[in-house]
Amino acid sequence: MSDQAVLSTPELDAVEFAVNPEPRCACVLLLDTSGSMQGAAINALNEGLRAFATDVAADPLARQRVEVAVVTFGGAVQVVNEFATVANFTPPALGADGGTPMGHAIEVALDRLETRKESYRANGVPYYRPWVFLVTDGQPTDEWKAAAQRVHDAEEANGLAFFAVGVEGADMATLGKIAVRTPLRLRGLAFTELFLWLSRSQRQVSSSRPGDHLSLPPVQGWASI
């Protein structure tokens, strides 16, 4: 049986970093694909992912620097895309089914990030502070408090920036306990606007230099206060 998963080994990573030694800006998309996302929501999410890939790829610097991984939680936790630069990123077509193992998904995302940072260091590739971008329309159906603690510890240590976005129906109170930054609520199904904002933000981060004061683009286009 052939496995369609993208090959990623330390050896192949070393080749990739030798070919493209640009500093890396890692971003994990942590996406809720539970049953409640079925229908219009998952379609809008998929469209948003395509808009994200197109918009980042249009930036010659960002397409070489921004690395995206996609982790989904719908029934089970799945690493749908391992880290790849946007130049090599094919947006997935996600389906929706099952429960919401958000806690486990966060742990998987943080583990993957740690491994990726180690790989950057081993290959001498400079990097930016990574982002984790969580999008959900529900509440965790698994144990999430340990994961929340890890997010808080990592933010405290300046190890990452963790953003949470709640789609209609999301348990904003729990999201507020997981993320240190105030979670934002998606306006309707404005996934495309959300992911274009993410693209603009990542483009800005990936071209920043020491001393830059990052002011992220306004979120009014997709978030309701």
């Binding site: 500093p23 930016y128 502070r129 230099r209 020491p210 001393g211």
Partner: peptide, 9 residues
């Protein structure tokens, strides 16, 4: 510093 866009002045 860990990150390429951060340093001490």
């Amino acid at each position: 510093s860990e990150y390429v866009n951060e340093t001490t002045f």
